[in-house]
Design a protein around this nucleic acid. Structure first.
Length: 426
DNA sequence: CCTAATGTTGACAGC
DNA sequence: CGCTGTCAACATTAG
């Protein structure tokens, strides 16, 4: 009798069933599939990941578990460092193949290399799949001869030389997915934990959950955003209002960050609408397609530029003697600068976890080159703690941009902490 | 080596 | 309200 094929699909980002090539691979010809998420202490820490984002993650896991149960399977949530936890599970379940979505961030690259080594030693085949970016970032690196583009225009040129954006992976349906063994399906030890289980406080006013996590909500939200074709075709990011009472943009960023929504699905859905409008639509950098290209550009920089998350040792980052005292940083992060526009944005960030892109510009300029002369790394740390959509590559890139450390250098163009907000709300 | 063009989204005055 | 030019003049890249 041939050896049974037992797959593990290890979820990290990519918390979805749609456009999930790792999940498709793990189901292919498998006798058993174990969909797994490992709660990594690297992130399960209220000092590193704020309660609103951790709640978003747990909601996303619950949604994923519900969807997998509809296919006769479930999500197995384990806790601990992946390198400590996974080998035991491979042995326990006699896993022969490990599939996961490739990740480009420094911590993840080290983690995944270690896991691949452990898997090889355990006789487990390893299969990474690209689905968090439109294309494999290494494809850009090869095409650009290892030279990461330093401008958006240069990136767009590179992007265009690589042809069409890859199609989405096919859906995973009931018949593709082997049922979970009854004993495992019922094992409550692998249930999704609560906030309290993870040592987080309950969410209470003034904090609010305006954007629930999960693939179901992501797809709903995308469809609501794309319903108005005229709005989609006329979208120009710089013309949207940072202080509108209802968000002026799609707020799909938290869903893209966790992979509840596939960037390729969003890209192709936009393409369909653009084609139906017979080419009458806005273009990158300001269009919705343009926003996905910014994300791609910054992911590539995060992958290809050394020490992209900090100033020292980062070859594209201007070395600036920022003010090391911390009372200004404290005032900024606690919404006590005395500038109503700045403090309102920081309050919204803390209580709701999402602020408009231009609002981020205003407070980032204020903290760094504009007024307080604090290091962009400190600002990035606060955003990384409080944003629902905190995404390492994008956050690092934008802070370098706004502080005139990289990408953007016209430091005499400052956002007024008073006048800028009045343009769209006198 | 030089010059000229380029760069997602500034503030402000004036039309 | 929306557009234009000026402000003073950056770093990077293409040629």
């Amino acid at each position: 009798m041939a050896k049974a094929k037992v797959s593990m699909c290890w979820f990290r980002k990519g918390l979805r069933l749609h456009d999930n090539p790792a999940l498709v691979d793990s189901c292919k010809g498998a006798n058993l599939v174990y969909p797994v998420f490992v709660i990594d202490p690297e992130y399960a820490d209220p000092a590193k990941v704020g309660v609103l984002r951790y709640n978003f993650l747990l909601q996303s896991l619950e949604d994923l578990d519900r969807s997998l149960r509809q296919l006769g399977s479930r999500l197995f949530v384990a806790q601990g460092r992946p390198e400590d936890v996974l080998p035991g599970l491979w042995k326990k379940w006699a896993v022969t193949r490990l599939c996961f979505e490739a990740d480009t961030e420094p911590y993840a690259k080290v983690r995944d290399t270690r896991i691949a080594t452990l898997a090889e030693a355990a006789g487990v085949d390893v299969a990474p799949h690209v689905s968090h970016t439109l294309r494999d970032v290494e494809q850009y690196m090869v095409k650009a001869k290892q030279k990461v583009p330093s401008t958006y225009a240069a990136f767009c040129k590179l992007f265009a030389t690589l042809g069409d954006v890859p199609r989405c992976a096919g859906p995973v349906e009931g018949p593709d997915m082997p049922d979970a063994p009854p004993a495992d399906a019922a094992d409550a030890a692998y249930n999704v934990p609560s906030l309290a289980d993870m040592g987080y406080p309950e969410i209470a006013k003034p904090q609010r959950v305006l954007f629930p996590g999960g693939e179901t909500e992501a797809l709903d939200r995308m469809r609501r955003s794309l319903k108005d074709h005229a709005w989609v075709c006329a979208f120009e990011k710089p013309k949207t209002h940072p202080n509108a009472l209802a968000p002026a943009t799609t707020v799909l960023s938290p869903y893209l960050k966790f992979g509840c929504l596939s960037p390729r699905l969003f890209y192709h859905e936009l393409d369909r609408i653009y084609k139906a409008a017979k080419g009458k639509h806005t273009q990158p950098p300001v269009s919705l397609h343009g926003q996905l290209l910014w994300r791609e550009f910054f992911y590539l920089n995060g992958h290809g530029v050394a020490n992209f998350g900090r100033m020292v040792g980062n070859p594209i980052c201007r070395q600036i003697p920022w003010d090391p005292s911390d009372h200004r940083l404290d005032a900024w992060q606690n919404a006590r600068t005395g500038f109503p526009f700045i403090d309102a944005i920081m309050t919204q960030l803390r209580n709701e976890g999402w602020i408009h892109h231009l609002a981020r510009h205003a407070v980032a300029c204020f903290l760094t080159r504009g007024d307080l002369w604090q290091s962009w790394e400190e600002g990035a740390r606060v955003f990384d703690l409080l944003l629902l959509d905190a995404d390492w590559s994008l956050n690092s890139a934008n802070w370098q941009w706004l502080s005139c450390s990289a990408f953007f250098h016209q430091y005499f163009r400052c956002y007024s902490p008073v006048a800028f907000g009045k343009k769209t709300d006198p």
